[in-house]
């Protein structure tokens, strides 16, 4: 995931009731410009339209949009797939417009995506976040993500990233022995190739 554009101080915020926000799953090409506008506004990296299409065409069920009175104010874009013998989900982009932040919108978006991933048989979810992105780190931390590793100068601006990971509980009832036989997942090198799609 790409570094966020630094937020300006003193942005105005909007008063709203939680119930006023409507969440919808990605519904087709007409949603694409909404997602693109949001991400373009808040993240520093230029994505080509192909990047968005890669995600929303292959995993439409993992992308969500948040609307407030018809206006798209937040979005999440994800994927999932086999990765070195693990089936894992990956959160690629998450954005909430500044005036709408701090109201749990991102939490709701992430939660929805993760639930679908879980139901689809993912064993874990990963993403990268800039080490300086306090908001995102706090948000994911509260959802149970751990900082699995630090990626040295992961972003072009020279900032390190954390690889965040959320491991789902195993479904079957397990003995301690099974528990210790953890999965084989030495993956970071390949990972860079596969998932740091935009740099």
């Amino acid at each position: 995931m790409e570094p966020a554009v630094t937020a300006k101080e003193g942005e105005m915020t909007v008063e709203l009731e939680g119930s006023e926000i409507e969440y919808v799953s990605y519904g087709g090409e007409h949603h694409l410009p909404l997602i693109m506008r949001l991400v373009d506004e808040e993240l520093s990296e230029p994505y080509s339209i192909f990047t968005y299409r890669y995600f929303v065409y292959l995993w439409p069920q993992l992308s969500f949009l948040a609307f407030h009175r018809g206006k798209c104010v937040g979005t999440i874009v994800c994927k999932m797939g086999e990765h070195r013998s693990t089936f894992r989900g990956y959160i690629a982009m998450l954005v909430v417009l500044k005036p709408y932040r701090g109201r749990g919108i991102a939490t709701e978006l992430v939660t929805r995506s993760i639930k679908v991933m879980m139901e689809s048989g993912c064993e874990e979810v990963t993403l990268e976040a800039e080490v300086t992105n306090k908001g995102a780190l706090a948000l994911y931390g509260r959802l149970g993500f751990i900082r699995a590793k630090r990626l040295f100068r992961y972003y072009l601006n020279g900032v390190d990233a954390f690889r965040l990971k959320l491991l789902f509980p195993r479904r079957e009832l397990h003995t301690s022995l099974q528990m210790m036989a953890t999965k084989n997942e030495n993956h970071e090198e390949m990972h860079l190739l596969q998932e740091n799609f935009c740099s």
Binding site: L143, G144, I146, L166, P169
Partner: peptide, 12 residues
């Protein structure tokens, strides 16, 4: 967290 427990975090 809503999705996992200390066990998973320990194992990770």
């Amino acid at each position: 967290g809503p999705f996992n427990t200390e066990l998973e975090r320990f194992n990770q």
